[in-house]
């Protein structure tokens, strides 16, 4: 059971929900950056939400199926997705026949989209996850992005099939213009914290899976750069001396020396993966009880996120 890569897309990697419980030895989490969209794709296919899938960044692949398979594409809205010559929809199960070619082009808005399969991608497992971590070449397909001409192998997964009903997506829009946060441990190093919540931040081209960087609008921070490195996670917002906040991403390092001014709330951390270069966004400060409520609401809307 195989598909062949005809076109790769900008940065297409195999991801699951990440490498958990290895941060104490310095191994980053990795995993799908917009894990809500990723989990959704698997849930729609009635598969365990941790099943490996392809994460596409800005542009996606063309894949030739050498076997019948079902797929589901979620996340950023793709300009055009076709199977052979017919357009197909996102957020729904699509049958792809043996010999057919699935083609994706470019994300119209937001950044990452996910292609999940009814069968399980055979990828390298390391510390209980097949997520690709490019900087150290862990997991995925040889620790790398998918390559043109590559054959991706699949294994049968009957035993893994979900017992529940497949998820039916209501097509809720991804909204990244406002990211809710709580105060971080070094929040008090901000000179005038109110400015932070009145500033339009602009996503930098230098952003990647390690972190979403910002440009232009600087916030005043009182830091001499001498802090001893502190624990950090995906979703923590660091602010270096230059005043340009960095939101740490799925591949975030585990220790860092810049002030941790904010943390994106658990209910919205998946949105960081959809911030696209030149997008504008603001931070909105909420309390810990509000952050807990937001998570409860997300669980009501998407019951499968209990496992996240």
């Amino acid at each position: 059971m195989t598909i062949q890569v005809l076109k790769t897309g900008l940065q297409t990697t195999v991801q699951d929900l990440g490498r958990m419980r290895s941060k104490h030895i310095g191994i980053p989490q990795s995993g799908s950056f917009d894990y809500l969209s990723a989990a959704k794709a698997n849930a729609i296919l009635n598969r365990p939400i941790n099943s490996p899938l392809l994460e596409c960044t800005m542009t996606g692949p063309s894949l030739k199926f050498l076997e019948d398979m079902d797929v589901c594409i979620t996340g950023a809205t793709v300009n055009q997705i076709t199977v052979d010559d017919s357009s197909i929809n996102q957020n729904t199960l699509v049958h792809v026949k043996k010999g057919s070619i699935l083609s994706t082009d470019i994300a119209k808005d937001h950044l990452r989209f996910y292609i999940a399969f009814s069968k399980s991608i055979q990828a390298t497992e390391f510390l209980n996850s097949v997520s690709t971590y490019l900087p150290a070449k862990f997991g995925g397909l040889n620790g790398a992005t998918i390559q043109k001409g590559q054959m991706i192998d699949f294994k049968e997964t009957q035993s893994e099939a979900y017992t529940g009903d497949p998820w039916i997506e209501n097509g809720e829009r991804i909204e990244t213009s406002k990211i809710r946060v709580t105060q971080g441990p070094e929040f008090n190093l901000l000179d005038a914290s109110s400015v932070l919540f009145e500033t339009d931040f602009i996503v930098s081209n230098d952003s990647n899976r390690m972190g979403v960087r910002t440009v232009d609008n600087r916030i005043p921070i009182n830091d001499q750069g001498s802090m001893i490195s502190k624990p950090i996670y995906p979703g923590i917002v660091q602010c270096p001396q230059d005043g340009l906040p960095i939101i740490l991403g799925a591949d975030a390092q585990t220790l860092g020396g810049y002030p941790r001014i904010l943390q994106v709330i658990k209910a919205e951390r998946h949105l960081i993966g959809q911030l696209r270069p030149n997008d504008h966004f603001r931070f909105e400060l909420v309390s810990i009880p509000e952050a807990l409520d937001a998570w409860e609401n997300l669980k009501i809307n998407y019951p499968f996120v209990c496992e996240l």
């Binding site: 958990m20 419980r21 941060k23 104490h24 989490q29 001893i228 490195s229 502190k230 624990p231 950090i232 996670y233 585990t254 220790l255 658990k266 807990l292 998570w295 996240l308």
Partner: peptide
Amino acid sequence: IEVIASEEVISIRSKVI
């Protein structure tokens, strides 16, 4: 839970909240 030790602080992040 996830746990990270730095030189002066231990941080814990929990899946269950």
